[in-house]
């Protein structure tokens, strides 16, 4: 899956794109990201996944917080909620609790998720609310023009850490696993086909699915999470990785030097909606 080096011809590509139907999921607003940004592949991936899964635009809501990644809903021809910095998950929780029939896809960046919004992730995960959370991790604040983020590596120089960043980066995969997320996977913006595959699987999962996407910021990170560095280090999870084995997932997540792509952990369990329906059934029994 990682060897896609055949030549691509524009005419063929245009025809392929138009016939795929995935443009129906794209809005008329063109993405405002920097040329070369890894995030483009995510719009592409989500559109492809929605096409393949046969989702209806009117029954899909894309929710985001604030940040480069959070502009995502504007580029989709679905319902969208561009909310506040860090608050995408609780907003999505409200939407999903209000209407189970909606497919809710939450997107966000590393600062939005793990800095200001860090308090919400454990709760969305433990409740197993049936939404998909696609996290675009570029290890830097892009929209505010280059500051350190909770996933920046030690030593990273930014406008707010001009000498060096001394803070240890978080390990999002381990966090999500320990929070009880029922589906955890990692993808890389430089591997768009695998990314699309992962997005499809994440949306298809019944419960809280967390997809961590490593995605270079071509503007504010020339040294750390670059296409070059990531391209040389990422690799697939071993073929014998057991997605039902929590300890194996945690062990694999510890390998941050050589990030592994694929599904780390997947386990079906009752969702928040299941729980709320159970509460309603018990309450109605008392009437």
């Amino acid at each position: 899956m990682m060897n896609i080096h055949q030549p691509v011809y524009l005419e063929d590509k245009l025809e392929e794109v138009e016939s795929s139907g995935k443009l129906a999921y794209r809005s008329q607003t063109l993405p405002t990201w920097c040329p070369g940004c890894g995030y483009f592949s995510i719009v592409e991936g989500v559109s492809k996944a929605m096409t393949d899964l046969g989702l209806n635009q009117k029954d899909t809501v894309c929710v985001s917080g604030i940040g480069c990644a959070s502009r995502f809903p504007f580029f989709m021809n679905t319902f969208g909620f561009h909310s506040l910095h860090g608050r995408a998950l609780p907003v999505a929780t409200g939407i999903k609790v209000a209407n189970d029939d909606l497919t809710v896809i939450v997107v966000g960046g590393d600062g939005d998720a793990f800095a200001i919004g860090g308090a919400h992730i454990p709760h969305a995960a433990r409740r197993n609310i049936d939404i998909t959370y696609i996290l675009f991790d570029n290890g830097v604040y892009g929209l505010t023009k280059g500051q350190t983020s909770p996933t920046s590596i030690v030593g990273f120089k930014t406008t707010t850490t001009p000498y060096l960043n001394v803070d240890q980066p978080l390990n999002p995969l381990m966090m999500l696993l320990s929070y009880g997320a029922s589906w955890v996977a990692q993808a890389y913006a430089g591997e768009p086909h695998h990314l699309t595959e992962m997005i499809e699987a994440a949306v298809a999962h019944r419960g809280f699915s967390y997809l961590h996407v490593l995605s270079p910021c071509v503007t504010f990170d020339k040294t750390s999470m670059t296409y070059k560095n990531l391209g040389m280090t990422v690799r697939p999870l071993p073929g014998d990785h057991d997605t039902s084995d929590f300890a194996a997932a945690m062990a694999a997540a510890q390998n941050t030097d050589l990030p592994q792509l694929g599904v780390y952990f997947a386990k079906e369990r009752p969702t928040l909606a299941d729980g709320l329906n159970e509460i309603a059934a018990r309450a109605e029994a008392t009437v």
């Binding site: 929710v63 909310s83 939407i95 609790v97």
Partner: peptide, 11 residues
């Protein structure tokens, strides 16, 4: 946030 989300969804 969830209240606004639910309100957005019509609740």
């Amino acid at each position: 946030a969830a209240t606004l989300g639910a309100g957005y969804a019509g609740a």
